[in-house]
Write a protein that binds this DNA or RNA. Sequence first.
DNA 1: CAGTGGTCTAGACCACCGA
DNA 2: CGGTGGTCTAGACCACTGG
Lengths: 236, 236
Amino acid sequence: MGKSDLPAYEQVKAWIKQHIGSGQWKPGDPVPSEAALMQQFGISRMTVNRALRELAAEGLVTRIQGSGTRVAQLHRISSRLTIRDIHEEVVERGHVHTTRVIRAEREKAGAEVAISLGLRAGATVFHTVLIHMENGVPIQYEDRYVNPSAAPEYLDTDFNQTSPTLHLLRHAPLTEASYSIEACLPSALEAKELAIKRTEPCLVMMRRTVSGAHVASIARLIYPGTRYSFAGQFQA
Amino acid sequence: MGKSDLPAYEQVKAWIKQHIGSGQWKPGDPVPSEAALMQQFGISRMTVNRALRELAAEGLVTRIQGSGTRVAQLHRISSRLTIRDIHEEVVERGHVHTTRVIRAEREKAGAEVAISLGLRAGATVFHTVLIHMENGVPIQYEDRYVNPSAAPEYLDTDFNQTSPTLHLLRHAPLTEASYSIEACLPSALEAKELAIKRTEPCLVMMRRTVSGAHVASIARLIYPGTRYSFAGQFQA
DNA sequence: CAGTGGTCTAGACCACCGA
DNA sequence: CGGTGGTCTAGACCACTGG
């Protein structure tokens, strides 16, 4: 009794997690088979299967058809790094988000940009540069190229009302994205617009989003190191 | 035919994803009920249920018991940022991982460290500082404090064989972790050990891991900005 | 070969929501 | 109240692994 109000598959998951978490079962050790767990808990195989399948999806166990289920080698510490609309993020902190548009225009794509967007060099692309501020303090310099095929009305947006990210999420449903995070020093222009020294290190996120058949956008997001950090947590 | 070799639940998922991805179904729109999908695909409810449950787990749809399934409001862009053992990571790239131990000793905890580890000030803690190298090039400066209650044998480890992360994963099963990533300039010592200039920006990850009742370890990991980046990708 | 997991079915009971 | 999703069962067939 006690926790008997939990669904059966959750009870199985909890039981297994406890054995792994307490160190009784070490990485590489076998986990009881579905048949064994059926008997032990007196439940059907589908229910046991769901428990094990979800544990596998969480990365706690490894399953190999024909071989068995084992405790995963490294309990990889992983957490969801969620990339969100910065407007939403700032407002959620109870702060005021404002935007200063530095540039918003049509451009002929240079070679590098064209390749990244999957266009031919010289094709027309949208280019925006803007500063996001939290309570008046600049926290992000956003330099973005947008594929007109993916979001034809992009430049009609009032970026003070609707952030580029939000517009794109609404008009070019996301199917794929990739990013990288690096550290670097700001350019003279970036430092000026962010109101920081050129020697202040920044986090730079390069992000590329795909919507259906098109690369929708490539963005370079620069955050002053002293005013922003990516954070996350994880629980077994 | 064609894709008929895919499991039925995957076909249902693909069909729904296509409607969402193409924009035919917009955020907030209802997704056909389990009963409707059963009929349409001629499959059992459990199979339909699995498809919808997985889509919900991926954040593409929202399900409310008694109400129905709808397309999720914002297709949140999120991906798993996986924190891995650096040794494993380097070896996977086909490179050679070596370690230089700068410091490995017992210490009286200062106030800040003690608080972070959940100990009283002056308690004994383990303190290690080491450099991780990939093909001989320094890529990470690791400054770590370990709670002796969580991993009593920590200092007996041969860190040239077993990285601190690996030792901790093995001896102090992870139950919780949190991290943050920032940009900053290295200290004089850090710059010297990493063989970089003091003006070269670095990525700094602060990580705190919990094992059962104890805070197991707090680590400050410093990566030269030009030699390392965090990257990831995700697919709807 | 026996044992494993991967998938699927055709039912079932329940809690919940909205009209 | 009818429709929804949440959970569960007792079978089944298959593909794969290992000895």
